[in-house]
């Protein structure tokens, strides 16, 4: 994405090499950010689904019959146990979402660092050219 802003013909080979290295890094980081964003979307929808189920379970009378589908079989499950399972899932998914968020924040920091080095290299190159 940063490529077009630079007149490649005007910079010497050394600078070009340095820039290319930074661009490659930027691309790598961007790809990872995208990957994490996709994962977050999936986790979000899982969290949503489980929250809906949790709300529904909370809504039930204590003596309600709850079944869990395991393979092709419906197995009767204790309401408290079902609530516990879903709560635990929600906990796990929330933690995973948080983990992905910190990961992206970190990746974005890296991205900015690489972008800064690009500006520095460019500034140096123009200074030499003048």
């Amino acid at each position: 994405k940063l490529g077009p802003y630079i007149n490649m013909g005007a910079v010497d080979a050394q600078v070009r090499l340095e820039l290319q290295k930074e661009f490659d890094e930027i691309q790598k980081v961007q790809k990872e950010i995208q990957k994490s964003a996709e994962l977050q979307k999936k986790l979000d929808s899982q969290l949503n689904q489980n929250t809906v189920v949790k709300d529904e379970l909370e809504f039930l009378e204590p003596e309600s019959n709850v079944y869990k589908l395991t393979g092709p079989v419906l197995v009767k499950q204790d309401l408290g146990e079902a609530k516990g399972t879903v709560s635990k899932r929600i906990e796990y998914i929330s933690a995973e979402i948080k983990r992905q968020e910190t990961l992206v924040a970190d990746l974005e920091k890296q991205l900015n660092k690489h972008k800064e080095s690009v500006s520095k290299i460019q500034a140096k190159a123009t200074a030499v050219a003048h």
Binding site: Q49, N50, V52, V53, E56, L57, L60, S64, N65, V66, Y67, K68, L69, T70, L74, A82, V86, R89
Partner: peptide
Amino acid sequence: DIGTNYYVEK
């Protein structure tokens, strides 16, 4: 079917 493989009798 209330989701995530849970079924409730109603």
